[in-house]
Amino acid sequence: MNESIVVNGVSKRFTMQYHRTLKQITIAAVRRQPLSETFLAVDDVSFTARQGEAIGLMGLNGSGKSTLLKLISGVMRPDGGTVLTRGRIAGLIAAGAGFHPQLTGRDNVFLNAAILGMSEAETKAKFDEIVDFASVGKFLDTPTGQYSSGMSARLGFAVAAFAESDIFLADEVLAVGDQPFKKKCLQRMAEIKAEGRTLFYVSHSPGSVRRMCDRALVLESGRLGFDGPVDDGIAYLKYDASDARPEDDEIGADI
């Protein structure tokens, strides 16, 4: 079996910096207060994803989902354990693209695609599809700093979704954006999955995870609490017991 993501005993520790200036550090030292406090955002997580697998990552806010995604994408490095991936990675982390606000939408598409490892020719070939998908229309040559949050999320998702990649990471893609766009996103992710790419999907919506994924991981304060079939994962989180309206369940409103 061809592994796509191998996460082995991975931990990530963050420092909560209470004292940043020399003055504050001195005062804290005199008062014998701790100089810094740390916590484990991701705590000894291990799992292996096969190429083409669609994994739904669930958990409450602050349970370490985005941190785990950043470790897999290479934006962060683990403090303990190892992360190994195979092939190109694209995706959207923590709802919102890495855009430069002074550049136009067009320039940001090219810059983002280049960072995702696409050549100029590859980007040009996909450009119309990306713009069409994001439907930013006449704002394509406006600096992205002036975009609404929904618009820049749409463009960010579109670049990542049409980039050449073997692993696709989607973090809370449905948290912003309107209903028609959410539908388009889910459709595009279904295509990505059908193409045989590894899909790593963070969501609070049990319905979309059920529809999209063949396996669920549940994080609980940084630890991997559950790894197995989607329905059992949702039951584990007790999300099913909630009285979410059916259309929320289907499309994925934030709970």
């Binding site: 061809n2 190892t82 992360v83 190994l84 991936t85 195979r86 092939g87 190109r88 073997d166 193409e195």
Partner: peptide, 14 residues
Amino acid sequence: EPRRPPDGPLEPPG
């Protein structure tokens, strides 16, 4: 159409 799976080695990302 299914893509050709990547044939590179497993590497630390980033």
